[in-house]
Amino acid sequence: MNPVNYLYLAALLFTIGAAGVLIRRNAIVVFMCVELMLNACNLAFVTFSRMHGNLDGQIIAFFTMVVAAAEVVVGLAIIVSVFRARHSASVDDASLMKL
């Protein structure tokens, strides 16, 4: 088996995650889908690392995880405060950007 298959899997997971972001209204689920996309990227990086024979890809994946952790912390805090204010976690309810 060629490790390229991992890349196909990563692409598939990434697309599924993106579709989830677009389809779901619950902000928490949307956030999970974002995490799924990040993980798909990480898988691609790890696979690239193996294919190229150096560890830089893994380093990138590592940093991605750190940044994702930071992002989750802030993002969930935002969700909680929005939920407190509006009693809803739906991204559609916060459609304040409309004219």
């Binding site: 677009l22 991204v91 459609s95 304040l96 950007m97 409309k98």
Partner: peptide, 17 residues
């Protein structure tokens, strides 16, 4: 085009995507 600007973040995400 204004109708595309419906304020829903998900719609904007679709166009980004």
């Amino acid at each position: 085009l204004r109708k595309l600007q419906n304020g829903y973040a998900r719609s904007y995400a679709v166009s980004m995507f």
